[in-house]
Amino acid sequence: MKIFTGLLVLCASVGLFSCSKGNLTDEFNTKMQNASCAELGSVECRISKVIKADDNASWYKFGDRKILFECKGTIKAGVDLSEKDSYTDVIDEKTNAITLTLPAPKVLALNMDPEETKLVYEKVSATRFDFSSVERTDLLRQGEQSIKEDLGKTGILEEAEKNSTLFFTAMLSQLGFKQITINYKKG
């Protein structure tokens, strides 16, 4: 009888917890902010990366779990002129020469479109739990972090420097300067 009562209480509590529902109010959508900036993006790279994880069997885990995503995204790099003293110029009016010193190029935006992140493969043994959305998101975050760490190897910053030099040279030439020198601060 006691066991039966215990089971009944357990079932009732499970039922109560599973029935609890939360309401999301419209007032939540209030955290918005406009901000000004000044960034000149001079290069855009289209990138792709495979994100995979193996959760193999061990002494306390029976069976494997494997997951594989394919991600695509874009990276934009250039110079950030937002700060007041981010650039300096020295003008020689006699020779119509200008030396412009710009901040070191940097990655301005990494955009991993969620719709371009595809789950390619997922395998879970019968004795293991399925990948939860929290786990999948965590793996994608690790992938994003890995992309950020590997950006230096892509040569995007060198390309951004080259393109920014071309842009400012053309602009200053159009403004009438004859001798143009573009330098970059060290990052």
């Binding site: 902010q33 901000a35 900036c37 001079s42 290069v43 855009e44 994880a53 959760d55 690790q142 393109n163």
Partner: peptide, 25 residues
């Protein structure tokens, strides 16, 4: 759970001239 090391592939690079002057969060 940790991801395995995989390569980052640059598929395409193009020159742009985007002057971003505002951001919205």
């Amino acid at each position: 759970l940790k991801i395995d090391k995989t390569a980052l592939v640059v598929e395409q690079t193009k020159k742009i001239q985007e002057f971003t002057s505002a951001q919205f969060y």
